[in-house]
Simulated scan of single mutants.
Amino acid sequence: MQLNTIKPAAGAKHAKRRVGRGIGSGLGKTAGRGHKGQKSRAGGYHKVGFEGGQMPLQRRLPKRGFKSQSLKFNAEINLSDLQALAGEEIDVLTLKATGLVPELAKSVKVILSGSISRKVTLKGVVATKGAKAAIEAAGGSVVEA
């Protein structure tokens, strides 16, 4: 085998269909475009979703909201969950181990819901203004890493 004798396998390549080359070709005259109308003309076509002037489907249907893709990485816990936890130092790993937040969670926020009466130290866990005040009133602290 030499470089000048290499060719594709039989049947691998086929000639491109040539339109508008006379009656005998089977695709002469209108060249497979039919008769008249926008689609038969050179350069004439419509935009995506165009329905001949009728209100397009994507505009007839109502708009629906937005679901954040980062939502699954954020978690919330309340003060009563912290009250029930054993131990004084609480971080994201502790919360994952106890099953209070999902394993996927990257950031955790404590919200002001329920009450806390024991001292806890939050490390790497964010708290809302009200929750932070409640934790500090109970003698605890919030250390944001």
Rank of each mutant, 00 (worst) to 15 (best):
I23K: 09
L3G: 13
K16H: 02
V48Q: 15
S25Y: 03
L71V: 11
K67F: 13
L61C: 02
K67L: 13
E144Q: 10
H35Q: 15
R17C: 07
E76S: 13
G139Q: 01
H46K: 06
P62K: 04
G28C: 01
N78P: 07
G52S: 07
A97C: 07
Q2F: 09
P56V: 08
V142P: 00
K96N: 15
S70L: 14
P56Y: 06
G44N: 09
G87K: 10
K29T: 14
N78H: 04
Q58D: 04
D91Q: 12
V125Q: 04
A9E: 14
S115M: 06
L3V: 06
V120R: 04
N74E: 15
A31N: 09
H35L: 15
L27F: 09
K47P: 06
V108S: 07
Q69H: 12
G37P: 08
E88L: 08
R59K: 14
D81G: 05
T94R: 14
S68G: 15
N4Q: 12
Q69L: 10
R118F: 03
G37F: 04
A97V: 12
L122C: 11
G28E: 02
A86F: 00
N74C: 11
A105E: 00
A84R: 12
T128M: 05
V125C: 04
S141E: 10
T121V: 13
Q69N: 11
K13M: 12
G114Q: 09
S107D: 08
V126S: 07
F66T: 11
E51F: 07
P56G: 05
S25E: 01
Q83A: 08
A131N: 10
F73W: 04
P102H: 05
D91P: 14
G26P: 02
R118I: 13
I6R: 13
G44R: 10
I6N: 05
K29H: 14
P102L: 02
I135P: 07
G139W: 01
I90N: 01
H46S: 10
S25M: 03
G37A: 13
L79R: 10
R60H: 00
A127K: 06
A12V: 08
N74S: 14
A15K: 05
G124E: 10
V143R: 15
R64K: 14
G22I: 06
G24W: 02
G43S: 05
R60Y: 00
A12Y: 11
L61H: 04
A105K: 02
M55L: 15
Q2E: 10
G65Q: 13
L85R: 06
I111C: 03
I6H: 07
S113M: 04
L82T: 09
A133Y: 07
N78V: 06
G139K: 04
Q69I: 03
S25F: 01
A137P: 00
V125H: 09
Q83K: 09
L3A: 11
R41Y: 01
I116N: 00
E89T: 15
A145D: 02
I77D: 01
L27N: 10
L61D: 00
G22V: 01
E51Y: 03
G99S: 13
Q54L: 11
K13D: 06
K96C: 14
E103G: 00
G49A: 02
N4P: 00
E88P: 06
D91S: 11
G24Q: 04
L85E: 02
G43P: 01
S117R: 09
Q69F: 06
T98Y: 02
E89G: 08
Y45G: 12
K96T: 12
K29F: 09
